[in-house]
Design a protein around this nucleic acid. Structure first.
Length: 429
DNA sequence: TCTGGGGTCCTAGGACCC
DNA sequence: TCTGGGGTCCTAGGACCC
């Protein structure tokens, strides 16, 4: 099968924007954009918004005039809703074909042979997946099929770009592959970002076809082995395989930009304590322990001047831990090390790393206190249980109470249609 | 005035050792 | 005066992804 193996990339069309439209049939032909956390930048656009030339990643305040002029509907991001719909999409795909890797919230890779099942071609299988996802979730997917993951990505790009494909492109014949690669800018290739694209263009490598034909030894010398593998993949030799079991997480982060700038240390302490509480909750839910805590704080990275400041520091733990109280205590100590008065901070984050599995308890270390931890464990278990039912119901003291200036802006958030009984859409006939 | 968050991997360079 | 070379490990920073 190895010589006859193909990869398919299944990718939801305009995923976040489509999730929002799903429950708002009144917005069928209306331009819709979804903003990043804190209502910062555009992270998803409906086809109507794309037609208005709203670029990906543009700051929301820069498109205010277009929003007014064209009646664009703006949503804050609602990740709980998107995660739930993503789960349903993945279930629908898996029900058609089990050899699947969930690659991101809206993408999955599949592997199959050129004749996946008797009487079923690769196109046939792709169409089956497309129909089932639409039937089960109401969401549309595009599918690209080719010999390697990198080529499947490009096939998917074509499936989205050219409506005549009806969202399915299967790349088999070499001359067809080459013709497509010549139409694709090198910056669209998976693994080639802005920096690499600039460097490649200076070397006169402008299209995916140019990169395919580039001298691989030179590419490895001037870039790195990753880009070298990309060249091999463009030539049809697979370097990246299907990863069905996700590896152990290496780090967990909670970071936020603030709705309002933070100037006081006690406000910052509340913010970073809350970030730490949140990330420790996730750590426990994945049954992991952290061996290191890092904290970073920074003023705005735009308008750099002499008042700008960014710093970070971290500490290796003597014993790996998932204890919120301990981790928050360390986070506050780290803040003491890097806090600088007189600054207007715009962002901060807590990073837990050196993660190890914590399932089934953990060896107590020789000099570790055996008195404190069991009490903490019980309290934390109860806090987790309550907070699972209602987020943020139980706080620890350093998180502070009441309105916090660091809270995210989320002015246009939609209801949790699929997760909250009170938000279930009502159909009137 | 307003510019996301959560990840991974690679590499260069420093520290250290023999 | 003159001060090696090879190896490992760790970390910060860069680049990329969605």
């Amino acid at each position: 099968m190895a010589g006859d193996q193909y990869f398919a990339l299944v990718d939801c069309n305009n995923f976040y924007a489509s999730c929002e439209k799903l429950f708002r049939p009144d917005l069928k032909n209306t331009p819709v954009v979804v903003l990043s956390n804190n209502d910062g930048c555009v992270v998803a656009r409906s086809p109507e918004a794309k037609a208005l030339d709203i670029p990906m990643g543009v700051p929301a305040f820069q498109i205010q005039h277009l929003v007014k002029k064209h009646g664009i509907i703006v949503f804050s991001s609602n990740y709980a809703l998107y995660a739930d719909l993503s789960h349903r999409v993945m279930q629908a795909i898996e029900s058609c074909w089990p050899d699947m890797e969930i690659y991101s919230i809206d993408e999955a890779f599949l592997t199959f042979s050129s004749n996946p099942l008797p009487g079923l071609s690769m196109e046939g299988l792709a169409e089956k997946v497309q129909k089932r996802v639409l039937m089960w979730t109401g969401l549309r997917v595009s599918i690209g099929v080719a010999r390697t993951k990198t080529l499947a990505k490009i096939a998917n790009y074509a499936a989205k770009k050219y409506p005549a494909t009806k969202g399915v492109v299967v790349l088999e014949e070499q001359d067809r592959i080459d013709r497509l690669l010549a139409l694709v800018s090198v910056g669209e290739v998976w693994g080639v970002g802005r920096r690499t694209q600039e460097k490649l263009c200076r070397m006169n490598v402008r299209t995916a076809f140019d990169l395919k034909c580039a001298n691989i030894l030179n590419i490895k010398r001037f870039f790195n082995i990753k880009i070298g593998q990309t060249v091999e993949e463009l030539n049809g030799s697979p370097c990246f395989t299907l990863e069905q079991t996700p590896g152990l997480k290496k780090q967990m982060i909670c970071s936020r930009s603030f709705g309002e700038r933070i100037k006081r240390k006690d406000d910052m302490e509340k913010a970073v304590s809350s970030f730490c509480v949140y990330v420790a909750e996730r750590l426990r839910s994945e049954k992991l322990l952290a061996g290191r805590v890092d904290l970073f704080i920074r003023t705005s990275c735009f308008n750099k001047d002499k008042t700008s400041y960014a710093n970070s520091c971290g500490i290796n733990l003597d014993f790996p831990s998932d204890d919120t109280f301990y981790l928050v205590g360390l986070t506050c100590r780290l803040l003491d090390c890097i806090w600088k008065e007189g600054k207007a901070y715009s962002k901060a984050g807590v990073v837990l790393s050196v993660l190890t599995p914590g399932e089934g308890g953990r060896q107590m270390q020789l000099f570790e206190s055996s008195l404190i931890r069991p009490q903490h464990e019980k309290v934390i278990e109860i806090m987790d249980r309550i907070n699972r039912e209602k987020k943020g119901k139980v706080l620890i003291a350093s998180q502070g109470l009441g309105q916090n200036p660091w809270k995210m802006k989320q002015s246009h958030v939609s209801p949790n249609y699929t997760l909250d009984w009170r938000a279930i859409p009502i159909i009137r006939c």
